[in-house]
Nucleic acid binder design. Structure first.
Length: 582
RNA sequence: CGGGGUGUAGCGCAGCCUGGUAGCGCACAUGGUUUGGGACCAUGCUGUCGGAGGUUCAAAUCCUCUCACCCCGACCA
C-alpha cells in the first residue's frame, strides 16, 4: 500500500483526550479516532492489527476444537431477566427500547443467547462436548470509560462457550481453552500471566484472568503473585491467611471512653491516642441488598468489597450514606464502633480476632473507646476474610513465599460456569442412563481491541509504537528520502513491487515530505522494518534496512534486499518469541 | 451519581475578568526554493465562538438552563 492512497492521519502534538501512553500513541499515530466517550473508529492501520489478532485467535480456537458462529448483538430482555442478570449486571448492561417500548439489551456477553440457542436441540451426551465461539462487537455501559480501548463502551471480543456432560468434561474443556489462550497471546508477542479471579456477576465456580504485565499507568489491575510458588491472583481474589505474627496476648484491660474531638480518620485518631493503626478497628457501614451491616477491619487494612460481597452472599453492596450512618450510630460519620451498635449484623475480618485492647469509635460524637475486646464488649455475627491482601504477606498456597504486587492489563478471562445458565434457562440433555441433566458450561473471553492496545502499552519508545511482528499492520515500510528523485523513486517502486509479488505486506511512503517527517512518522506508526532509500547509499547500489526499536541499520545491495529482508525478519521474529518465554 | 475542569477553524490554543471588526500556531490549497530526522518565502481558504433562552443599542464575553467531553472520586468514617 502506498501512503498517499491510504488514510494515516498522524498528529504532531499529543492528543489532549489521552492519559496513558498507549492511548496517546494510537491516536497520534492515526490508528483510532474517538466518536463519543468510550466509542472509537478503527482506522486502516488499526483494522489491519485487529484482523491479525482475530486471525491468530481464530486459528487457535479452531485448533482447540471450537466452532465459529455469529450470534446477534441485539437480545430480548426476557433472556436476561430469566438469569437475573438484568439486575445483577445492573447499570453496566446496555439497555434500550424498540418502537413498541419492548426492552432490549445490546450484548456485552452471550451466555444467555448461546444457552438459548442450543436448548432443546443439543439433546444427547453423545453430542458433547461442544465449544462455540464468535468474534464480535460487544457493548458495556461502563461507569467511566477511559484509556481509549482499555475500557470502552463498545469493543471487539472473542467469546467462547463450552458445554459438557460432567465436571471432568468441563475441566478438560477449560484446560484446552487455557492452553489455547497462552498460545494466542504468545503468538501475538505478549507474555501473559494467568491469575485467579473473582467470578463476579458471571457466576460459577472458578475463574482466571490472563494478564499482560506492565509497569506503566496502563496497568489497571493489581495482582499478587507468590515469590516462591505459582500462586497468582488479582486483588479482588487474593486470599489473606491467618496473620503469621500474632499479636501478643496481653491481658484485657478495662474498657475506657476517651474524648477525641474532631478526630474522624484513622490517622487523626491513632496519632492523637498515640497507638499504631493496627490497634484500631474501623467500623464500616454498608447497605447490603438494602440491609445495613457493619464490617470490622484493622485500621491499617483496606476492605475488599468483592470479598465482603461474596461472604455476605449479596448482589448489591454499597457504603451507607451519611444519613444512614448517623441514624444507626447516633453519631457523625467517623465515630462508628461495634460496642452497643444495635440492629446491625457485625462481620469481622479474620485478623480482628487476634487483637486485644484495641480502639474503636464510641457511636458518640467526639469519642472513641480504647481497650475494646471481642466477646467481652461485643459479639461478632460472622468472621471472614474481607480485607485486601498486602505486599509481602504470606502466600495462601505454599505458606512459604511472600506475595508481591504487579500491575497488569486483563486481555483474557476464563470462567467455569457450571450449571448457572443451563438451570436458569432450563437447558438439559439426556445422559447415558437416560437421565435429564443440566449442561455444565464454561465461558471464555479475549478482548481483541484491548489486546492490541496492551501490545502498544508494552512495546513503545519515545518515538512511538514498536509492534511485535505477528500483529504489525505492515511488515515493512519503504522510505525513499526524496520521492521526487527519479533514481530513488524507481528503486523504491522496484522493491515495493518485488515485495508485493512475494505477498509481503509493505507500506511505501510515497509522500513528497522531507526525510525527517517520514522518519518520524515511520517511528510513530511502528512498522517492524524500515527500508530507507537515499542518495548516498544508492550511489553504491545499496539501501538500508533498520529494525524498529533498535539503532542498528544494515546496508544491503538492492538486488539482495528481499533475501536480506527475510533473514532479518526471521531473526527478529525468533528473538521476539524467546523474549515472551522468559 | 458526587466534585473539578473544558467546549472558539481539521488539530492545539489565545481572546471572556473590564460587552463594541473573531485571532495565533500547525494543518490545508497554489506557486517557488529546498530535500538523510518534524524546511523556508509568497499568496490564499477555513468559524452557526457546543446548544437554547435572557439582559443590552450591541454578547464569544454578562445571566439562566441544557448538552457534550476530560480528570478525580464513588472502599479507608
Amino acid at each position: 500500500m502506498k501512503w498517499s492512497e491510504t488514510y494515516i492521519p498522524t498528529l504532531r502534538e499529543e492528543p489532549t483526550e489521552a492519559e496513558i501512553i498507549s492511548h496517546k500513541l494510537l491516536v497520534r499515530a492515526g490508528y483510532i479516532r474517538k466518536l463519543a466517550a468510550g466509542v472509537y473508529n478503527y482506522l486502516p492501520l488499526m483494522q489491519k492489527v485487529l484482523l491479525k489478532i482475530t486471525q491468530i485467535v481464530r486459528e487457535e480456537m479452531d485448533r482447540a476444537g471450537a466452532q465459529e458462529i455469529l450470534m446477534p448483538v441485539l437480545h430480548p430482555a426476557e433472556l436476561w431477566l430469566a438469569t437475573k442478570r438484568w439486575e445483577t449486571v445492573g447499570k453496566e448492561l446496555m439497555k434500550m427500547k424498540d418502537r413498541h417500548l419492548r426492552d432490549l439489551v445490546l450484548g456485552g456477553t452471550h451466555e444467555e443467547v448461546v444457552t438459548h440457542l442450543i436448548r432443546g436441540e443439543l439433546r444427547s451426551y453423545r453430542q458433547l462436548p461442544l465449544n462455540l465461539y464468535q468474534i464480535q462487537t460487544k457493548f458495556r455501559d461502563e461507569i467511566r470509560p477511559r484509556f481509549g480501548l482499555m475500557r470502552s463502551r463498545e469493543f471487539i471480543m472473542k467469546d467462547a462457550y463450552t458445554f459438557d456432560a460432567d465436571e471432568n468434561g468441563l475441566k478438560t474443556s477449560y484446560q484446552k481453552m487455557v492452553d489455547a489462550y497462552f498460545r494466542i497471546f504468545e503468538r501475538c508477542g505478549l507474555e501473559t500471566k494467568k491469575v485467579e479471579s473473582d467470578t463476579g456477576a458471571m457466576g460459577g465456580k472458578a475463574a482466571h484472568e490472563f494478564m499482560v504485565m506492565v509497569e506503566t499507568d496502563g496497568g489497571e489491575n493489581v495482582i499478587f503473585a507468590c515469590d516462591n510458588c505459582d500462586y497468582a491472583a488479582n486483588i479482588e481474589k487474593a486470599i489473606s491467611i491467618e496473620p503469621s505474627e500474632r499479636e501478643s496476648k496481653e491481658a484485657e484491660k478495662p474498657l475506657q471512653k476517651v474524648s477525641t474531638p474532631n478526630m474522624k480518620t484513622v490517622e487523626e485518631v491513632t496519632g492523637f491516642l498515640n497507638v499504631p493503626a493496627r490497634k484500631l478497628v474501623k467500623t464500616l457501614l454498608y447497605k447490603a441488598d438494602g440491609e445495613v451491616i457493619a464490617a470490622l477491619i484493622r485500621g491499617d487494612r483496606q476492605i475488599n468489597e468483592t470479598k465482603l460481597k461474596n461472604s455476605l452472599k449479596v448482589i448489591e453492596l454499597e457504603m451507607a450514606d451519611a444519613v444512614t450512618v448517623q441514624r444507626i450510630t447516633e453519631a457523625q460519620v467517623g465515630y462508628a464502633g461495634p460496642v452497643g451498635l444495635k440492629g446491625v449484623k457485625l462481620i469481622g475480618d479474620k485478623e480482628v480476632l487476634n487483637l486485644t485492647n484495641f480502639v474503636t469509635g464510641a457511636n458518640e460524637d467526639g469519642f472513641h473507646l480504647t481497650d475494646v475486646n471481642i466477646d467481652r464488649d461485643f459479639k461478632l455475627d460472622a468472621v471472614a476474610d474481607i480485607r485486601s491482601a498486602t505486599l509481602d504477606e504470606l502466600c495462601p498456597k505454599c505458606e512459604k513465599g511472600r506475595l508481591k504486587t504487579a500491575k497488569g492489563i486483563e486481555v483474557g478471562n476464563t470462567f467455569m460456569l457450571g450449571t448457572k445458565y443451563s438451570e436458569a434457562l432450563n437447558a438439559t440433555f439426556v445422559d447415558e442412563h437416560g437421565q435429564e441433566k443440566f449442561f455444565i458450561m464454561g465461558s471464555y473471553g479475549v478482548g481483541i481491541t484491548r489486546t492490541a492496545q496492551a501490545a502498544v502499552e508494552k512495546f513503545h519508545d519515545e518515538g512511538g509504537i514498536i509492534w511485535p511482528v505477528p500483529i504489525a499492520p505492515y511488515l515493512a515500510e519503504i522510505v525513499p528520502v526524496n520521492f521526487q528523485d527519479e533514481k530513488q523513486r524507481e528503486t523504491a517502486l522496484e522493491i515495493y513491487h518485488k515485495m508485493q509479488d512475494k505477498n509481503l505486506e509493505v507500506l511505501l511512503d510515497d509522500r513528497n515530505e522531507r526525510a525527517g517527517v517520514k522518519f518520524n512518522d515511520a517511528d510513530l506508526i511502528g512498522i517492524p522494518l524500515r527500508i530507507t532509500i537515499g542518495e548516498k547509499s544508492l550511489k553504491e547500489g545499496k539501501v538500508e534496512v533498520k529494525v524498529r526499536g533498535s539503532q542498528a541499520t544494515v546496508s544491503l545491495r538492492k538486488d539482495e534486499v528481499l533475501e536480506g529482508f527475510l533473514k532479518i525478519l526471521s531473526e527478529i521474529e525468533s528473538t521476539g518469541k524467546e523474549s515472551t518465554k522468559t
